[in-house]
Computed example of a mutant assay.
Amino acid sequence: MGQLNSVLILGGSGQAGAGAAAVLRRWHPELPLTIAGRDLGRAQRVADELGAATAATVDLRRADLGLPADAEHTAVVAALWDHQLRGLRYAQERGLPYLSISSGLVDIAPEIVASAQRPSASAVLVASHFCAGIGVLATLHATREFERIDTVRIGAVLDELDAGGPAGLADLARWATATSAGLVRRDGVFTWVAEPDARTDVPSSDGVRVPGQSIAILDVPSIALATGAPNVRFDFAVGESAGRRRGGPASVELRIDVEGTGPGGEPRSLHRYLVHPEGQRPLTALGIALGVERLLGLRGEAVPPGVHTPEALLDASYAAERLAEIGAQFVGAPGGT
Score class of each variant (00 low, 15 high):
residue 5 N to H: 02
residue 7 V to Q: 02
residue 10 L to W: 04
residue 17 G to M: 13
residue 19 G to L: 14
residue 29 P to H: 03
residue 29 P to D: 03
residue 30 E to H: 06
residue 31 L to I: 05
residue 33 L to P: 02
residue 40 L to F: 04
residue 48 D to Y: 02
residue 49 E to A: 14
residue 52 A to T: 05
residue 59 D to R: 11
residue 59 D to T: 09
residue 62 R to P: 02
residue 67 L to N: 09
residue 70 D to E: 12
residue 73 H to T: 04
residue 77 V to I: 14
residue 81 W to E: 12
residue 83 H to S: 12
residue 87 G to S: 09
residue 90 Y to P: 02
residue 97 P to T: 06
residue 100 S to F: 00
residue 108 I to C: 04
residue 109 A to W: 00
residue 115 S to K: 01
residue 115 S to N: 03
residue 116 A to G: 03
residue 116 A to W: 08
residue 119 P to L: 06
residue 120 S to E: 14
residue 136 V to P: 01
residue 140 L to I: 13
residue 140 L to G: 14
residue 145 E to C: 12
residue 145 E to D: 15
residue 150 D to N: 13
residue 150 D to P: 00
residue 151 T to W: 00
residue 152 V to Q: 14
residue 155 G to R: 10
residue 160 E to F: 12
residue 162 D to H: 09
residue 163 A to G: 09
residue 167 A to T: 10
residue 169 L to F: 01
residue 178 A to V: 12
residue 181 A to S: 11
residue 188 G to K: 13
residue 188 G to P: 09
residue 190 F to H: 15
residue 191 T to Y: 00
residue 192 W to I: 00
residue 194 A to V: 06
residue 195 E to D: 15
residue 198 A to L: 03
residue 210 V to D: 01
residue 213 Q to G: 15
residue 215 I to M: 05
residue 220 V to L: 11
residue 228 G to R: 13
residue 230 P to Q: 12
residue 232 V to I: 09
residue 233 R to G: 01
residue 242 A to Y: 01
residue 244 R to T: 13
residue 245 R to S: 06
residue 257 D to I: 07
residue 261 T to A: 14
residue 263 P to L: 15
residue 263 P to S: 15
residue 267 P to E: 11
residue 273 Y to R: 04
residue 276 H to C: 07
residue 280 Q to I: 12
residue 280 Q to M: 11
residue 282 P to D: 07
residue 282 P to Q: 07
residue 287 G to P: 05
residue 289 A to M: 11
residue 296 L to R: 03
residue 296 L to I: 06
residue 297 G to Q: 04
residue 298 L to P: 02
residue 306 G to D: 00
residue 307 V to L: 13
residue 312 A to L: 04
residue 314 L to C: 08
residue 315 D to H: 07
residue 325 E to K: 10
residue 329 Q to W: 00
residue 335 G to H: 10
residue 335 G to D: 10
